[in-house]
């Protein structure tokens, strides 16, 4: 069943205001809503679409656009994009109005520091949930662990790890 545009807009608009730390931090909630609660996507499609979104340039939060298009076609993708960007942009617009008072504020840096554990905790959860969902053949957990180490320990472009994962898939997942 294809959800209505309004449902798609509402779902991603809600996610928009909670998006602290990018798509990796948002992955658990997107998974929970789209796969577990609403049933718009199955687990295997979700992880593959998420992977697609991470291979593209630009803000990785556009994972929302990818999910929206997979759920309801091109228009769904555009609506999901508006939903994920809109409320956050309106908030940024509002805050920009206070900017002169805010920009040297002593609490800004510690407040930002306070968001670190939330973003990191959610990213870790995202990795585990996506990793479970992507366990489609024996090498998958090894790819996940290897990519995590590559990203954590080297400054190289993570696209190389995605490419290597794909090649391992070609070799062993057919």
């Amino acid at each position: 069943m294809t959800p209505s545009w309004l449902e798609i807009l509402g779902t991603f608009a809600l996610l928009s205001l909670l998006a602290v730390g990018g798509a990796n931090a948002l992955a658990p909630e997107m998974f929970r809503l789209l796969v577990e609660t609403r049933g718009w996507l199955d687990e295997a499609s979700f992880v593959k679409l998420f992977a697609l979104s991470q291979a593209a340039p630009g803000p990785n939060i556009l994972a929302a656009s990818v999910m929206g298009m997979a759920v309801a076609g091109l228009l769904g993708g555009i609506i999901a994009t508006i939903g994920i960007l809109g409320p956050a942009a309106i908030l940024a617009w509002t805050v920009a109005g206070w900017l002169d008072r805010l920009k040297g504020a002593w609490w800004l840096k510690p407040a930002q520091g306070g968001l670190v554990p939330i973003a990191v905790g959610l990213m870790a959860a995202g990795g585990i949930i996506l990793g479970e969902a992507a366990f489609s053949f024996w090498a998958a957990p090894l790819i996940t662990a290897g990519t995590a180490a590559f990203v954590a320990l080297t400054p190289r472009n993570p696209l190389w790890a995605l490419l290597l994962g794909g090649l391992i898939g070609l070799a062993f997942a057919r």
Binding site: N24, Q54, A140, T147, P158, A161, A173
Partner: peptide, 13 residues
């Protein structure tokens, strides 16, 4: 099927 677990690794990494 190979890229998907790598994307999970990106988040974890």
């Amino acid at each position: 099927a190979g890229v998907a677990p790598a994307a999970a690794g990106l988040a974890l990494g």
